[in-house]
């Protein structure tokens, strides 16, 4: 690309033609790549971690719906703020609060 800057243009033109590291060597390339691919394949732990994260993300709306359902069933109204929430759920605890 012409930069409209002769000194930079000249530098780029010369630098473009220089191959600082030469050509890639094919020696051992396939062996190294295959070894890396084996390592890159996710194992059971990685697959489980991915699935569990997705499972958790998918479960969140279900958990919210369940919470709303339970709250409506027991008090026929949603708890009012954090205080109401604590009071409501404290009632289920087997403690003399």
């Amino acid at each position: 690309m012409n930069t409209n800057d002769p000194p930079l243009n000249q530098l780029f033109t010369e630098a473009r033609l220089h191959q600082p590291f030469g050509e890639p060597s094919s020696f051992g390339f396939e062996t190294r790549l295959r070894a890396a691919l084996v390592k890159a394949t996710p194992g059971f732990a990685e697959v489980f971690a991915i699935l569990s994260w997705r499972f958790a993300a998918a479960s969140l709306p279900i958990a919210l719906v369940a919470f709303v359902f339970l709250a409506m069933r027991h008090q026929h109204a949603l708890p009012d703020g954090v205080g109401g929430l604590v009071t409501q759920w404290a009632g289920f605890l087997p403690l003399p609060i």
Binding site: L11, E14, H18, P20
Partner: peptide, 13 residues
């Protein structure tokens, strides 16, 4: 010529 290219590459780098 090769030296000129290498120097240009070093400068650009």
């Amino acid at each position: 010529r090769a030296r000129s290219r290498r120097e240009a590459w070093e400068t650009v780098s």
